[in-house]
Amino acid sequence: MRGIPPAGHAGAPDRAPRQVDDLLGRARAGDGEAFRGLVEPYRRELQVHCYRILGSVQDAEDLVQETLLAAWRGIGGFEERASVRTWLYRIATNRCLNALRANERRPHERPACRSGVPLPEPSRRRSEPSWLEPYPDVLLEGIADSAPGPEARYEVNESVSLAFLAALQQLPPRQRAVLVLRDVLGYRAAEVADLLDTTEDAVTSALKRARAVLTRELPVADRESAPLPGSPRERRVLDRFARAFEAGDVEAVVAVLTDDAWLTMPPTPLEYQGPGAIGHFLRVIELREDHRYSLIPTRANGQPAFGCYLRDPRTPVLRAHGVLVLALEGDRVSAMTRFADNSLLPSFGLPRSLRG
C-alpha cells in the first residue's frame, strides 16, 4: 500500500479488543483495508483536533493525511503501550507542532479585509494577526460521540466555538497542545507528558500558563441564554439580523447587538466593540451605499453563520464575499466574526456566485 485509503464516514463505534487485535495483526502484515478499518473511526476527531491547534480547516486535513500516512509507515513499530486512538493523537499533535514551528502554514497567503477605504480606528488592536478559519458544522457530525476523558473541562460545542479557538491562537504552540490534550480531550498529565515527550512538571506548568491566558481572553457569556440551534427563537434573531443586513440598514443591525458585542475579522488584528464602534464600521466599510448583500444561512463552529454574496447593479450575478459567523445571547447578537476568504465557501457547500 503506497498511500492512505480514501476517507470514509466518521463515527467511532466501540470495537471489541479481539476485533482490534485482528485488524492490527492484518495491518502489520500489509493489509491496507485492515489498516483503514483500524484508523478510519478516528479520522474526523483527529481533523477537529488538528483544527483546534492550527486554526485552519485545510491545514487540519493536510495534517490528518500526514498523520495517517506516518501511522501506516510506522504500524510495525506500534508497541501497544497505549490505545490506537492515543497513538494517532500522539502522531497528529507532534505533526501539528512541527508544522507551526516550521511556519508551513504560509499565513501571508491568507487574505485580510480589503475594503478599498481606510479602516476606522478599532476598539482594540492585536499585536499579531489571528490566522483562524471557520469550521463547517457538517464536519462536526459524530464528534460528540467521542466522549472526552475525566480531566476535560470543555464540552465539544464550547471547544469548537470561535471564541475558544481565537483564544487558543494567543497561546504558544506547546501550551496550545497541552491545553487541548488536557482540558478538551481529558488526557491526564502523565499521558500528555508521554504524548509530547516531556515531563509532568512541564505539562503542569504549561497548562497553568495556558489557562491563565484563556481566562483573560475568553468572553464571559451566559451560554444558557443562547437560543437552541435551529429553534424558533434562534430563527427569529437570525431573520431579524439578515433582513437588516441585506437591506443595508445599519441602525437595524445595531439594534440586534448586545451592548458589549464584538466585531472581528481574522486575520486582521483590528477589533470593534459595542454598537457605536460596530455601527460606524458598518457604515464606512461593510454596508456603505454601494454594498448590498444576499446572505445564505449555514453553520460554523456550532454557531449560526451566513455565506455572503455582494450584489452588482450592473449584472444579475452576485459575487461571493466570504463568511459571517455570529454568536448569540438571548435575542441579541453578541459577536460577529467576518471572514473575507472566498476559498472557504466550498467547504460549506456554498457556490462562488449566485444569480439574483
Rank of each mutant, 00 (worst) to 15 (best):
Q169H: 15
L171N: 03
R174W: 14
Q175M: 12
A177N: 05
V180Y: 00
R182K: 06
L185V: 05
L185R: 04
G186D: 03
R188P: 10
R188F: 13
A189V: 15
A190Q: 13
A190W: 12
E191G: 12
V192A: 02
V192F: 03
D194G: 15
L195H: 04
L196V: 12
D197Q: 14
T198R: 03
T198P: 06
T199G: 15
T199V: 13
E200Y: 08
E200T: 14
D201S: 15
A202L: 15
V203I: 15
S205M: 13
S205T: 15
A206Y: 04
L207P: 05
K208N: 15
R209F: 11
A212R: 13
V213E: 08
V213H: 09
L214H: 06
T215I: 13
T215D: 14
R216F: 12
R216Q: 14
E217V: 10
L218E: 10
L218M: 13
P219I: 03
A221R: 11
D222Q: 10
R223L: 12
R223Q: 12
E224M: 06
A226L: 05
A226T: 07
P227A: 04
P227R: 02
L228C: 09
P229W: 10
S231E: 08
S231D: 09
S231M: 09
S231V: 12
S231T: 11
R233D: 05
R233H: 10
R233Q: 13
E234I: 02
R235M: 10
R236W: 05
V237K: 05
V237G: 00
D239P: 08
R240A: 11
A244E: 00
F245W: 05
E246G: 04
A247H: 07
G248M: 01
G248Y: 00
G248C: 04
G248W: 01
G248V: 05
D249L: 02
D249A: 11
A252K: 03
V253L: 01
V254D: 00
V254K: 03
V254G: 00
V256Q: 00
V256N: 02
V256F: 02
V256Y: 06
L257S: 02
T258E: 05
T258F: 03
D259F: 09
W262P: 01
W262M: 08
L263R: 00
L263E: 02
T264D: 07
T264G: 04
T264V: 12
M265A: 11
P266T: 08
P267M: 08
P267N: 09
P267F: 06
E271S: 14
Y272K: 03
Y272H: 00
Q273D: 11
Q273M: 13
Q273L: 11
G274D: 07
G274F: 00
P275L: 08
